[in-house]
Amino acid sequence: MNKQISVVLVAAGICFGVLMSWQFASDAPSDSNFLADEISARENLIKGFLDEQTYLQSRIVFLRKEIEREQDLIKSQGTESSLTELEKLKRILGLSEITGKGLEVTLNDSPIAVRQGEDISSKGLIQAADIRDVVNLMNAASADAISVNGQRIIASSPISSVGTTILVNNSYISPPFVVSAIGDPEIMIQRLSNRAALPELYKRVQESKVSMKVSLREWVRIPIYNGDLKYNYINLVE
């Protein structure tokens, strides 16, 4: 009898301990309005920044096009060689729109994964590292130009995450994530098909049902870079 009571006590104690720990670790929102107000204030603040960012990016694209138009107008004034050099630099830096043959890689979360509120560790979510790996692979396959969800990728483009949100060029993007690349489709397909080149992504495609779809495209448009270019610490060796 004594032994039976001890067994019941142990079982009850373990259950109580487990439930207590889960309860403390729970992310369930409290009844207090304070948390809801805080979340709402945070969302409004972020929305304000994002609206401003959208305006600034479109203004930058507009100004770059205006500058190009003005430069075309003064082409005949002995500036031809300078403008040719400038055009070349702009092409290198991703400041010209490019179209051509290529492919699109579409990465998407597992149908059962929910991005809102989930932990970035969730295996069913596409992570920034997956996009970085695909972009790097396209670069290694000598792609001429790359974009992710319409954001032109240049050498200094960061692809990172804040919680479950993914940022490219520090701009928010949401799934599905479409990596577009102009270049030799055969080389790029060959690289993408190599499971050893993307081991983590292929593993999660199999195990967690995230999806990766590659489509060949006869015509891909890669937009101009709409971000800032930092250079104030750089000096040219004369």
Partner: peptide, 18 residues
């Protein structure tokens, strides 16, 4: 135009920098 060329040359990797 010259200023723009100089600025872009710094970040393009076409010239040595420090």
């Amino acid at each position: 135009i010259d200023d723009e060329i100089k600025r872009y040359t710094k970040i393009s990797g076409q010239s040595p920098i420090f």
